[in-house]
C-alpha cells in the first residue's frame, strides 16, 4: 500500500534553512508500522534521515516521536490505522526536549531528572537472612510503575513542562513512586519531602492527563503522582501550597457539598501568606466589579448533610 510521510527535518550543520518538511512517498506492506516506513526511507530512499530505534517491539523505548501531533512509539503504531485511505502522516520529533537532528531529541534532561529521584532501593539495614525478600503481592502492586520503558512520551506532552522545564515531570515522578511503594525501601519520607518542593515538585502537575493518554505502557504517571501526593499528605509533608489546595478542597466539599472557590484561593496560598494573597486580589477586584467573584457563602448542595455523613462513614471504615 502507498503511504506518504511528511517528516520534519532539522540539520544543525546547515548554516540556514535548517528546518524543513520533507515528503517521502513509498510502497509498504499492509501491516507496516510507522517505524517500518521510516526505516524504509532511511535504508532505501534517504540515508541522511536520522531517527532512533532499536527493538521494534515497544520494549526499548527509543522510537518516541509525534505522529500527526500525538506522541507515540512509532514501532507500536500501524500506518494503516492512521491512514486507512492513504492520508499523509506528519512525523515530528517529540516535544519539550531539544532536537539534536531530525527526529532525534536530547534526552539528557530526562535522565538527569530520573537520577534526581535516586532511582535505586535504599534500605536502612541489611536483612538478617542476607536476602531482601519482597512478597509477590507487593511486587504485583508495582507492576504498572515498573513497566516504564523511559521512552519520554509523557515528558513530550506534559503541559507543565511546556511552560516550566524545572518541573520534575511525569516519568521521574512515576519512577519515584516505584521506590516509595517498594517495601524494601526505607527512604519514603526523605523521598517525599524532596518531591514536596514548592518549585518543580509533584504539586506542579496540573492533572491534565496528557501523560496518561500517551504512555504506551499503561504507567499512568498522573495517577502515580496522585498516589505520591496522597502519601505526602498522610505522612504530614505539610509545607507546600499544593498540599493546602487539596486539603482545603476536601474540607470545602464535605462542608458544603460543592467547591467554594474563594476559600480555596485563601487556604491554598496560606492564610498568613500576605504577599500571595495580595497577588490574588486585583483579579478578584476586577471580577467583583463585574459581579463575577465566586460567592463568599458557598452554594450549598441541597443536602450536603448527606455528603458529610458519607465522608464520615468512609473515614470510620478506614
Amino acid at each position: 500500500m502507498e503511504v506518504t510521510l511528511n517528516v520534519k527535518r532539522f540539520d544543525p550543520e546547515k548554516p540556514k534553512n535548517n528546518t524543513w518538511i520533507q515528503e517521502y512517498v513509498m510502497d509498504i506492506h499492509q501491516s507496516s508500522t510507522v517505524l517500518d516506513a521510516l526505516i524504509h526511507v532511511r535504508e532505501e530512499m534517504d540515508g541522511t534521515l536520522a531517527l532512533r530505534c532499536a527493538c521494534r517491539a515497544s520494549i526499548c523505548g527509543s522510537c518516541g516521536m509525534k505522529v500527526n501531533g500525538e506522541a507515540k512509539l512509532v514501532c507500536k503504531t500501524r500506518v494503516e490505522e492512521l491512514s486507512p485511505n492513504g492520508e499523509k502522516l506528519l512525523i515530528e520529533p517529540m516535544g519539550n526536549q531539544p532536537v539534536i537532528k531530525d527526529l532525534i531529541v536530547d534526552l539528557s534532561a530526562f535522565f538527569a531528572k530520573m537520577e534526581q529521584i535516586s532511582p535505586f532501593l535504599q534500605p536502612n539495614k541489611e536483612p538478617e537472612s542476607g536476602e531482601f525478600i519482597a512478597s509477590n503481592d507487593s511486587m504485583e502492586k508495582l507492576l504498572t510503575e515498573m513497566n516504564c520503558i523511559m521512552c519520554g512520551l509523557c515528558v513530550s506532552e506534559c503541559t507543565v513542562l511546556e511552560v516550566d522545564n524545572t518541573f520534575i515531570g511525569p516519568a521521574a515522578l512515576a519512577k519515584a513512586s516505584r521506590f516509595v511503594y517498594d517495601p524494601r525501601d526505607d527512604k519514603t519520607s526523605e523521598r517525599l519531602n524532596c518531591l514536596n518542593d514548592e518549585a518543580g515538585g509533584m504539586w506542579d502537575c496540573t492533572r491534565c492527563m496528557q501523560c496518561v493518554e500517551v504512555c504506551p505502557k499503561g504507567v499512568s504517571p498522573m495517577d502515580r503522582i496522585m498516589d505520591l501526593r496522597e502519601t505526602a499528605i498522610e505522612i504530614g509533608a505539610k509545607k507546600t501550597h499544593g498540599y493546602h489546595h487539596t486539603n482545603s478542597f476536601e474540607k470545602s466539599v464535605t462542608a458544603n457539598g460543592r467547591l467554594d472557590e474563594s476559600r480555596l484561593a485563601l487556604e491554598s496560598a496560606g492564610i498568613f501568606n500576605i504577599f500571595r494573597l495580595l497577588d490574588l486580589v486585583p483579579v478578584g477586584l476586577r471580577a467583583l466589579i463585574r459581579g463575577k467573584l465566586p460567592p463568599f457563602i458557598p452554594h450549598k448542595a441541597k443536602d450536603n448533610k448527606k455528603i458529610k455523613e458519607l465522608a464520615k462513614a468512609i473515614k470510620e471504615k478506614e
Binding site: R207, M226, R229, E230, I233, H245, T246, N247, F249, E250, V253, T254, G257, R258, L259, A301, K302, D303, N304, K306, I307, L310, A311, I314
Partner: peptide
C-alpha cells in the same frame, strides 16, 4: 439534580478517591 454534590474535580480524588467516587456514583 439539586441534591448532587460536587464531582470533586479530580482534586478530592487525589486525597480521598473513595469519597470522590462515592459522591459521583450517588
Amino acid at each position: 439534580l439539586t441534591k448532587a454534590g460536587c464531582t470533586g474535580a479530580g482534586v478530592l480524588q487525589e486525597k480521598n478517591p473513595l469519597l470522590g467516587d462515592t459522591i459521583n456514583v450517588r
